[in-house]
Simulated scan of single mutants.
Amino acid sequence: MTDTYSIGSLSQLAGVNVETIRYYEKVDLLPAASRASNGYRQYDGKSLERLSFIRRGRELGFTIDEIRDLLTLAHHPERPCADADRMTRAHIADIEGKIRDLQRMRRALRQVAHCAGPTAEHCKLLHALARTD
């Protein structure tokens, strides 16, 4: 007999919020669950595996569409890995761009931090935000 899980059990096992599971079903990332006679959703082990795959992909920052593509690749093991490699390299480039942006923001904030002015009138951050250049 195959194990079946309620949406709450699946949520706990996969480490994903119940509303997230419903959303993944709505956007066709997770197939709709079968229903028990009482109308409750019933999930199987494949749903748990797929949901765990999705969660790990999201933790790595892949978009829903990218995860959809990765799931397609995962279900076609005969296909070349080049598509996954291309997606990974593009994702790394995006992350590196975000890191550069965050470092730039950190430098800018460090320049205005620790304001010694006694009042908001002398606040370095407020002056920096009010500049028109």
Rank of each mutant, 00 (worst) to 15 (best):
M1N: 09
T2R: 14
T2F: 07
I7N: 07
G8M: 10
L13K: 11
A14I: 03
G15S: 12
G15K: 03
V16S: 08
N17M: 08
N17P: 05
V18H: 05
E19S: 13
T20W: 07
I21H: 06
Y23S: 10
Y23A: 10
E25I: 04
V27W: 07
V27C: 09
V27I: 15
D28F: 11
D28Q: 15
L29E: 04
L29W: 05
L30Y: 01
P31E: 06
P31I: 07
P31F: 01
A32F: 00
A32I: 11
A33G: 02
A33Q: 01
S34A: 14
S34G: 08
S34F: 12
R35N: 06
R35Y: 06
R35M: 05
A36D: 06
N38T: 05
R41Y: 05
R41E: 06
Q42E: 12
Q42V: 12
Q42H: 09
Y43Q: 03
Y43C: 03
D44V: 03
D44N: 07
G45K: 15
K46S: 15
K46C: 10
K46H: 09
K46G: 14
L48W: 01
E49G: 11
R50A: 01
R50V: 01
L51K: 02
L51S: 02
S52Q: 15
S52G: 12
F53E: 02
F53S: 02
I54M: 07
R56K: 14
R58Q: 14
E59M: 13
G61I: 01
G61C: 10
F62S: 04
D65S: 13
D65G: 11
E66Y: 08
E66T: 01
I67V: 09
I67F: 04
D69T: 14
D69A: 15
D69L: 13
D69F: 05
L71S: 02
L71T: 03
H75R: 13
H76Y: 00
P77L: 01
R79A: 13
P80R: 05
C81A: 09
C81S: 05
C81K: 00
A82D: 14
D83C: 11
A84F: 02
A84V: 07
A84M: 04
M87D: 03
T88N: 09
R89L: 04
R89I: 13
H91Q: 11
I92V: 12
I92T: 02
A93Y: 00
I95V: 13
E96F: 01
K98L: 12
I99G: 05
R100T: 14
L102K: 11
R104W: 07
M105F: 06
R107T: 15
A108S: 14
A108Y: 09
L109C: 08
L109M: 14
L109Y: 07
R110V: 09
R110Q: 14
R110D: 15
A113I: 12
A116V: 00
A120G: 00
A120Y: 13
A120W: 12
E121G: 00
H122M: 11
C123T: 08
C123W: 04
A128I: 02
L129F: 04
A130W: 00
A130P: 01
A130G: 12
A130T: 04
A130I: 00
R131M: 03
T132N: 10
D133A: 06
